[in-house]
Write a protein that binds this DNA or RNA. Structure first.
Length: 463
DNA sequence: TACTTCGGCGCC
DNA sequence: AAAGGGCGCCGAAGTA
């Protein structure tokens, strides 16, 4: 059977999207070139000082003895040889090709002072090698013009390259500052970022129609991440802190939605208790709290082996069971039905009219329609702004980028309020008028940097 | 010199 | 029964 990969509506969305994104690319983002040059040199000096310290440590001396002038702290092979063969540290697992793992997660478990320096060095190297170098290379006359592609991702999402505008550091405060200070607004303007809150979860609702999820997405008093944090750590609502909620969200709920399983959840949540120094709202350590609840150890977490009673692993396994069988059974049923239908037909169709055909694993077939359609909500909104509303309303504003569920703009300070009202109306109201299959409210958060200030200075605002 | 694969890491 | 979805870029190391 021949499958045409899109409907007319989907074709139109991408046709307009190509034009709108080309305009975004052409406009570009203003760069503080002097800052980038200055910071590049400063980071280089900092890296040299760190390397000097590394040289003087015991690991550094062993490294020099083994490799001499060939010493390269950036080589995973050399690092593994020194740590696990020469120094005798315990290997923390293997890569796909059977080498010792030397990523951050494996290294922090070794308890070795050299490692802290190495991790700091890697971070600075990332900032310098990938971001500052990339910005310098691609900036022309003070403007950076990243590409936004619509022909790459299997899910009909976008991608971005030269430079990748969609992976600028934001979580690590130090790297965030180094890189994002390079991005500045045009004269008399300020930078604005608008993102759909929990867009993929909201779009998943249109597929599975789970009533419990519907309540979470429509009742402002309900809070799915808080609830699952309570389950994972056996805590009452009043003991949930922002950090604990963060863990429920990013180490249980989101991984579960992407198809992960309890064993990984248990490992990550258990590590977080120590790494993030988790305490209940009334100040008790979670370690002690779980012990009181009868959970004294993590559990072996070995695939194929049953989780032992009274381990954290067993507990999270039960939380997972409850999550899908009791809390979201309709969602679970949809996943099974959807995958079965894909297996029968060999293709799947998104709410936005795009068709994915080919061999997909279970998790892929389930995730693609949500990921793609969610991005299409953003692209539709961007098209309205770039191709229609900005000009129609006479706004002095330029869309300069897009990050899957958010839009970045460079807006005249005097037009900020009008811009925000316009784009909020499009993203929250007009989008749903156009696509009535979206059956839950969509809400937009705004972050704004002060006039003339860099992208690093963006702060969430009420509007 | 040019290319590929791998490990690692940045984002949603 | 299976067991984390989607991207791009860097340097290291090996191959052509």
């Amino acid at each position: 059977m021949k499958v045409i990969p899109y409907s007319k509506e989907a074709y139109d969305l991408f046709h307009e999207g190509m034009i709108a994104l080309a305009k975004v690319e052409q406009a570009g983002m203003r760069i503080n070139v002097e800052y980038v040059d200055r910071t590049f040199k400063r980071i280089s000096r900092r890296m040299q000082r760190i390397e000097q310290k590394m040289k003087n440590s015991d690991v550094g001396k062993a490294w020099d003895k083994q490799y001499g002038f060939k010493t390269n702290y950036n080589s995973p092979d050399q690092l593994a040889t020194i740590l696990f063969d020469v120094m005798g540290y315990e290997s923390q697992g293997e890569t796909d090709s059977g080498r010792h793992k030397t990523d951050k997660n494996a290294l922090v478990k070794l308890d070795c002072p050299f490692i802290d320096l190495l991790i700091e060095l890697r971070k600075l190297d990332k900032a310098k090698g990938t971001y500052l170098t990339g910005i310098k290379r691609e900036t022309v006359d003070g403007f950076l013009h990243p590409f936004f592609n619509l022909h790459i991702a299997k899910t009909f999402r976008s991608s971005s390259d030269k430079i990748n505008f969609q992976n600028i550091p934001v979580r690590d405060p130090a790297i965030k500052e180094i890189v994002r200070k390079a991005f500045i607004p045009r004269e008399g303007r300020q930078l604005v970022e608008l993102d759909f809150s929990s867009l993929e979860v909201s779009i998943s609702q249109a597929y599975h129609q789970d009533p419990t999820m519907f309540k979470y997405l429509t009742d402002p008093k309900s809070d799915m991440h808080r609830d699952m944090a309570m389950e994972c750590f056996l805590l009452p609502e009043e003991e949930i802190t922002p950090k604990i909620r963060y863990c429920g969200k990013n180490m249980f709920i989101f991984p579960q939605f992407y198809g992960d399983w309890y064993m990984n959840n248990a490992k990550h949540l258990w590590d977080a208790i120590d790494d993030m120094n988790l305490k209940t709202a009334s100040g008790k350590s979670l370690q002690a709290h779980l012990k009181e609840k009868g959970i004294k150890s993590r559990g072996a977490c070995i695939p194929g082996e049953d989780a032992l009673p009274r381990t954290f692993e067993r507990h999270i396994q039960e939380v997972e069971q409850d999550f899908w069988n009791e809390r979201f059974p309709i969602y679970k049923q949809w996943k099974e039905d959807w995958y079965k239908k894909y297996r029968e037909r060999g293709w799947l169709k998104m709410k936005t009219g795009f068709i994915c055909q080919g061999y997909f694993k279970r998790n892929e077939a389930i995730n693609y329609p949500v990921q793609g359609a969610a991005f299409h909500c953003l692209l539709w909104s961007l098209n309205q702004m770039v191709l229609r509303e900005i000009e129609t309303r006479g706004l002095t504003a330029t869309i300069v980028g897009q990050i899957h569920d958010s839009i970045v703009a460079d807006v005249d300070c005097d037009h900020l309020d009008a811009f925000l009202i316009t784009i909020k109306e499009i993203m929250e109201v007009k989008l749903r008028e156009t696509w009535d299959w979206i059956n839950v409210p969509l809400s937009v958060d705004a972050e704004v940097a002060p006039p003339g200030k860099s992208w690093y200075e963006k702060k969430e605002i009420e509007f």
